[in-house]
Amino acid sequence: MKPARFEYHRPGSVDEAAALLAELGDEAKVLAGGQSLVPMLSLRLAYFDHLIDVSRLDGLRGLTVDGASLRLGAGMTEAAVGADVGVARAVPLLARATPLIGHFQIRNRGTLGGSIAHADPAAEYPAVALALDAELEAFSASAGRRVIPAAEFFTGLWSTALEPDELLVGVRFPVWTGRCGFAVEEFARRAGDFAIAGVVVALELNGDDRVARAAIGMLGLGSTPLRAPAAEAAAVGQRAGELDGAELGRLAMSGLEDIPADLQGSADYRVRVGAELVARAWAAASAEAAGSDGVGVTAASAGAIDG
């Protein structure tokens, strides 16, 4: 389990990293936290002549919140995302999804951008980004800065809309305000394993307890992270307390393609689990929204940080 020979580059800036990517093209791979890439190299399941290590670039760090959005540097570690009270307050789903990513040693190195750019269909951050319609900021030497909507970003198994010379530099998440509720439900064989299925739910209630908007993201149920548009549409305008979670689960599972089947379970099994997780996440998010004071997320949920 030793990787084949590669050349290691540690650029000093985002511009230098982009220049290297432009120069080396397909022979190079960006190394961030290395939590997926390095095992693949060590198992010799992947070979690259050049690794461009962006893990120490200050230009990929940092966090800014304005009223409408939270922007995180792509190089922020998952542990940092999970521990940040500002993140928990602005985008509770990020904070609540973080403890489900691997183990804390993995989160200490793994990065937000690395997880999203790797685009594993069972990963948590891609599903959150997709559910919340995040914007992915790419940068290249040739085209400069480019914003890619999450809905267009995940193009297939481990593949994204990033061009070979593009580096993911930041992610902008919309901040939901009002009477909102959020929930993450995931099922894995063991804590920290790749999820068999997972669901993230965000919803907002209006003054008479009807669903003003709903976002349901799913992981582990296809070759990319997925939304559940039929379930979302069915929910909007309804009284949250009157919605049948099981029906939402069925709607969310309807029309799924490329459902993985592996050692841990068949496609049918994943659908059964996925439908149940939709119901459970919807119930949890609804309860939270109903109990919300409408100003922001509750203190209890803001405190649900990586532990």
Binding site: P39, L43, R189, R190, A191, D193, F194, L263
Partner: peptide, 12 residues
């Protein structure tokens, strides 16, 4: 690999 060979851990 340990992705597929599941050992019990402290959480189980």
């Amino acid at each position: 690999t340990f992705v597929d060979y599941l050992l019990p851990t402290t959480t189980e």
